[in-house]
Every structure is written in C-alpha cells, then in structure tokens.
C-alpha cells in the first residue's frame, strides 16, 4: 500500500526499456533460438496455408491438430520410460524411440485432421454453407477439442520429457549452437523443402494447385476434389505431428491442453506474414516471426514482449504488403 515500503526494482518503474547492450550480447543465441521456434511455427503454418489455399478456410482447429500430436509424443515417450531426467539409453534406442514417437504423432495429428474434416467441414460443404459458418465451426471445433483434452487430462501441464541432452556442436561468434537447435532447424527445413517440391511437382500437388485455382474447372478436368481436400488436411496433420515432436523437444513441459492455442495463432500469423496460401511464404513467415519475437523479447527485457513485438511487426508488414511478403497464392505458384 505504501509505495515507499516497496522498493521496486528499477525496471518496474520504466515499464518499457530498450536494452540494446543485452541484445548485442545475446544476439546470436537469440538468432538460433528464434530460428528453432520459427521452424516449428513454419511446419504448423503449412497446415493453415494449404487448407486456406484449397478451401479458403482458416482452419482454427489446426492448433488442436497440433496439440493432439504433442499428446501422442507425450504418451509414446513416457510409456517408453522418458521423463524429466536425461534418459539413460543408448543412442540407437533413443533414435528408435524418437522415430516411433514421430510416426505416432504424425499419425495422431493426421487422423485428427481427417476426422475434423469429415465431421466438422464436409457436412457444411455438402450443404453449401456460407464461408462465415465454416469459420465459426472451426473456432467451435478448436474449443471442443481443447476442452475435451482439459476434461480428460486436467489443467496442469504434463510432466516434462527430456529426449536427449543437447550438446554443443559448433560456435558462432562465441555462441554455442547445440544439437537440439540443429536437429530441429535442419529436420524442419528438409521437411518444408520436401513439401514444397511435392506441391509443385507431384500429381497430387498439381491437383491441390488446380483445386486452389478453380475448383469447378479442376473437377471438370477430372480432379477428384473431395480426395484433394482430404489429402490436404492429412498433409497438414502430418506436418503438425512432426512439429509436435520438435516442440516437445524444445519445450519439454509444453504439453498442456491449451498449449496449442498461442502457438496456433502464431503459426497462423506466420502464414499470413509470408502470404497465406503460399507454401514458401509459410516457411519464410515462420522463421521471421520466430526471429523477430526473440529479438524483441531480449531487447525489451521480458518474455511477455515476444508476442507484442511479433504482432506489431506483422501489422506493419501487412500495412505495406497486404497480401503478405511473398504474396502469391497456392494456385498461382509456379510449377
């Protein structure tokens, strides 16, 4: 009550300060952490972008497709004996366990995405519901899945899972890049390049682009629209499941019913930043958003700033380029 009795820390009085020396000192570690988060955002962002490209639908429930993958990782690894402590297993056992978790998480997320499409969206499509109805359904589905998990697992986060001890691999200007960051960034980028080539080169990818460009003409040309839609949802789910493994690797205690919500919003923002409907845009947007948020939080000295900075930059970019940085839609992307 009496302010004189509460000698506040200097930072309490100046609620906004720019700590440039700290950013300079932590620049490279912020960069690598930012890229790691960015890679995870980008994998989830692809799910938003692909579905938007094909259906013009913002699938808000995609964040729950992702969190189901996180739970799959949690249950797989904790039943295999992983926990908060570093596992005492030999290398190959860990590789096998993590591969199993990856496959199961991708499956779990893909099945969730598939069911979501069949139960929530397909009936609406068959009745030619207006687009707004899809959006509300998506939000409703998101809450439904989230609170089903809440009822099942309760409000507390699950026990942390340590998959392996991150070890220094090399250092850049005195900042150590560890194996964990490297694993996440490289694996995520390889997956994204794979997806990009899949969309631009494969038969199914051509189908996806055709439906995105003009569903009716595509159908007349012999493209099975329903199959393309389902495939799109499943691809998004597979990628979200892979993102889930990397997310738990990065944030071991992040498995919680509401854990997908903020990440989902950021991944969606990443998709918009890069240009929604554009596969490469999602990649670029994700990495940028991860970097900007991390620089911002170090510059402003509090983790609460991550999202503020990321979204202010998002709005500024959209003011200048409303269609996002790369802008082109899925349908028009070059083959």
């Amino acid at each position: 009550m009496l302010p004189s009795l509460v000698p506040l820390l200097p930072t309490e009085n100046d609620w906004i300060t720019f700590d440039i020396p700290s950013l300079a000192q932590n620049f490279w570690s912020a960069t690598f952490d930012g890229l790691t988060f960015g890679a995870i955002y980008a994998l989830v962002a692809l799910g938003y972008t692909l579905v938007y490209g094909v259906l013009n639908l913002i699938n808000f429930a995609h964040s729950e497709v992702f969190i189901v993958g996180c739970y799959a990782v949690f249950f797989t690894l904790s039943s295999l004996g992983f926990g908060p402590s570093v596992p005492r297993l030999d290398i190959w056992a860990i590789i096998l366990n993590l591969l199993l978790a990856l496959v199961l998480a991708m499956l779990a997320s893909a099945v969730t995405a598939f069911l979501l499409e069949r139960i929530a969206y397909k009936p609406l499509r068959q009745r030619n519901a207006p687009r707004l109805v899809f959006l509300i359904t998506a939000i409703g589905a998101s809450f439904t899945i989230q609170y089903l998990i809440y009822l099942w697992r309760g409000p507390s986060p699950e026990l942390a899972l340590t998959m392996f001890r991150p070890t220094p691999i090399f250092d850049v200007f005195g900042t150590i890049v560890d194996s964990q960051q490297l694993v996440i960034i490289i694996a995520a980028v390889i997956m994204m390049v794979g997806i990009d080539r899949f969309i631009s080169k494969s038969r199914t990818g051509r189908g996806i682009r055709a439906v995105a460009q003009d569903p009716d003409t595509a159908t007349l040309m012999g493209v099975n629209k329903e199959r393309i839609i389902i495939t799109t949802f499943i691809i998004g789910g597979l990628l979200a499941g892979a993102a889930a493994l990397f997310y738990v690797m990065k944030i071991p205690s992040g498995v919680q019913y509401s854990g997908g919500f903020v990440l989902g919003i950021k991944a969606f923002a990443a998709a918009v930043l890069g240009g929604i409907g554009n596969v490469r845009g999602a990649l670029l947007g994700g990495l940028l958003l991860g970097l900007i948020g991390n620089y911002g939080q170090i510059l402003l000295g509090n983790s609460q700033w991550t999202d503020v900075v990321a979204f202010v930059v998002l709005v500024l970019v959209l003011l200048l380029r409303p269609e996002g940085i790369l802008g082109t839609s899925l349908g028009r992307s070059k083959a």
Binding site: I95, I169, D178, S179, Q180, V183
Partner: peptide
Amino acid sequence: TFSMLLSACAN
C-alpha cells in the same frame, strides 16, 4: 532419420 542421428551424436 537424419535428425535422429544428430540427436544420437548429441546423446
């Protein structure tokens, strides 16, 4: 597989 291998070295 590649990522797992990396993590293996890490471990």
